[in-house]
Design a protein around this nucleic acid. Structure first.
Lengths: 233, 233
DNA sequence: ACCGCAATCCTGGTATACCAGAATCAGAGC
DNA sequence: GCTCTGATTCTGGTATACCAGGATTGCGGT
């Protein structure tokens, strides 16, 4: 088996897209970016008309979204975009902390020079981005953060866990975190990233684990800082 | 959102089945039971004919199997049932150990009397089954084992992790373990289950975690004991 | 003016026809 | 006899028509 869990966006060649993939990506992007809001219903025929794709691939895309946890299928009723509530976010972070920390420890044990180069390159990019423009929860920055964590998961050589982490710490979750960041938070996050790279480079799994735990907990704290009961999505 | 991850077999009413569900369950059962072997190709039209269901729901079922990691979609080619190799199993156990142990610790913190009753009931059933018949890797026993671990995950009050665990420690994985069990192994496993319940009941997360880690590691050891390079599925 | 019921509409579920690309097989050329 | 190539076939991808079950709305009764 190649992944063992839903595919998310893990196609081999992003260029090769059939209609179903196309619909999936468009809808996924809209949900993650907030263009489609939680609780909104997705009607098959409407989407067909808008995307100029027939119902079969649209249905397929919707089922995939459901498998990703981005939408709820309700038998004989329209699919509805899922929303995060406080409880859900707590669950997500609970899982995220465990897996990210474990993966960081594994990474420390298994890292090869090449992995460290990749990690450093990503952090350099983040640093450059923060130096240039006023930091914000831009799509670009979130993507880099995802890339960083993904690279660590790759270093841990367990694609199954990497896949789960991608789904768990999704764009929506990260957006929720970064949305609340003030400039100093970005600086802190960057420093933590550097610490994590150092810990992985040292080959010390305990250090690496605790550095990552601290890092994710910081994000969680930001998430909880304000707007506690707010409906996020 | 209700699940956050692929649905596996988590429908509310098992009786209410549309064609797609039906096909999904049949195929899932066949793969897990070994009736369909790893590497086998599943052709849509053949399945239609056999199950008397049209291609649309069959396709849907196949995509779900793929999302479950039970099959690989290959663009423009038939779906193929996935197989486990040694590496995959190692990854699965790596993930399983982390999550089961974490969930056990959580369960110790959150268990209510009702949870403990349920856990005990399941272990009693297992004990009764082992007392009656010569222990084997029967479907019934595996289901009970799954129920036990699922009940612990439920006690931990994190449905997201529970869902991932269900998929990770799937029937096929457990079958692989129990297949290699000798009678004393079943007894050991049962004793470990009782230890875990005790640990959860005591409210001590550390004890609970280590008891579970030990338990899963025991299973992993059985898995690795013989037939190392064997093609499992 | 409000409530209940029924006819209608709307939407997802299913079946099926058609298309395009992959696989296979057969014949020509070496 | 072997190989390369082209035609045929087989199979997944897509479009679409039809069906059945919820949702809605409007009418009649109170």
């Amino acid at each position: 088996m190649t992944s063992g869990l839903p595919d998310a966006a893990s196609n081999a060649t992003p260029g090769a897209m059939n209609s179903s993939d196309q619909a999936y990506r468009v809808l996924r992007e809209r949900i993650l970016s907030g263009s489609i809001k939680p609780g909104e219903v997705l009607k098959e025929r409407d989407l067909c008309e808008e995307l100029n794709i027939s119902r079969t691939p649209i249905r397929e895309a919707l089922r995939r979204l459901s498998a990703d946890g981005l939408a709820d299928v309700r038998p004989r009723r329209s699919i509805i975009v899922t929303s995060f509530d406080e409880t859900e976010l707590a669950e997500i972070f609970e899982l995220g902390i465990v897996l990210e920390s474990f993966v960081a420890a594994l990474a420390a044990e298994k890292a090869k020079p090449d992995d460290l180069v990749k990690l450093s390159a990503i952090v350099d990019q983040m640093e450059a981005m923060l130096a240039q423009s006023p930091p914000d929860a831009s799509e670009q920055y979130i993507k880099l953060d995802q890339a960083f964590h993904d690279a660590i998961a790759a270093t841990a050589r367990n694609p199954r866990i990497a896949q789960i982490l991608r789904q768990t710490m999704s764009f929506r979750v990260l957006h929720n975190i970064f949305e609340r960041y003030v400039p100093t938070d970005f600086a802190t996050s960057l420093a933590q990233h550097k610490t994590i790279i150092g810990a992985i480079a040292s080959g010390d799994p305990d250090w690496s684990r605790s550095a990552m735990t601290s890092h994710v907990r910081t994000g969680q704290a930001a998430q909880n800082r304000q707007d506690k009961g707010r409906h996020t999505g």
